[in-house]
């Protein structure tokens, strides 16, 4: 279970949001560009600090302004795929996926076994030794997803994961995301600005406008005019 209530003064407005997600649940954060969606993910991951609030993941308190708890990003066990996938272009696909395991000082046997499994699951076995910088957008996104999931995160967060992908890859990445979140029974937050994404993968939609929750509910009930979210 993931539960957060955060407040932060941003440049143009104040972010003030409460958000929760259960095991295996996909919550889609929607809103216009600059509504504060990515800021929410950055705060949850620990890359940015809120001014006030609390963030809890299962039984662990990641942040609490009241008790001055602030777990560093590297210890939060959150799989976070940033915009544009951010695969490390100078490393091979295999090394990209292994990065988080090496950082956690796992044994070479463990790393080989897990990386091999994720290469297979993501249908990128034949790309293991290819430099990630040479991959297509869809392949990069699958590498980024495998890299985030191989560390067995307690929460998965994806920032605009379907942008810059062709239709076939959008469908594939959506299916893979849905499958792993359900199988691993972890909460998942996805930032997108397209309503079609929320309908395809989301269990719940949270529309954010100027840092505040504008609407929350089932994807199929999302009012089309909400915060002028563009649909594609």
């Amino acid at each position: 279970m993931f539960d957060a209530a955060i407040r932060k003064k941003l440049r143009d407005f104040s972010l003030d949001l409460a958000i929760r997600a259960g095991p295996g649940e996909v919550v889609v954060l929607m809103g216009e560009n600059g509504a504060g969606k990515s800021s929410v993910l950055n705060i949850i991951s620990g890359l940015a600090s809120p001014d006030k609030g609390s963030i809890r993941l299962n039984s662990t308190v990641l942040f609490d302004s009241g008790t001055n708890v602030d777990v560093p990003t590297e210890n939060r066990r959150i799989g976070y795929v940033l915009q544009n996938s951010a695969v490390f272009p100078h490393l091979s696909v295999r090394e990209n996926i292994a990065f988080g395991l090496r950082a956690r000082h796992k044994s070479p046997v463990f790393i080989k076994e897990h990386v091999g499994r994720w290469l297979k699951v993501m249908h990128i076995e034949d790309l293991g030794d290819v430099k990630a910088g040479n991959l297509s957008g869809g392949q990069k996104q699958r590498v980024a997803l495998a890299r985030a999931l191989v560390i067995e995160p307690a929460l998965l967060m994806l920032d605009e994961p379907f942008t810059a992908l062709d239709a076939e890859n959008i469908q594939l990445v959506k299916e893979l995301t849905r499958t792993f979140v359900t199988e691993m029974a972890i909460p998942c937050l996805i930032v997108t600005h397209r309503m079609s994404d929320s309908r395809d993968v989301g269990d719940r939609v949270c529309v954010i406008c100027q840092g505040k929750k504008d609407w929350e509910g089932k994807p199929e009930n999302t009012p089309a005019h909400m915060c002028r979210c563009g649909d594609v």
Partner: peptide
């Protein structure tokens, strides 16, 4: 910054990020 930020979320220490990500890039 997305490269260093991603490396942080994957659990890498600042020294590891510098050596494995920033320097090679």
């Amino acid at each position: 910054p997305c490269f260093e930020q991603t490396a942080r979320t994957l659990g890498a220490s600042p020294l590891r990020i510098f050596a494995k990500i920033t320097l090679p890039l």
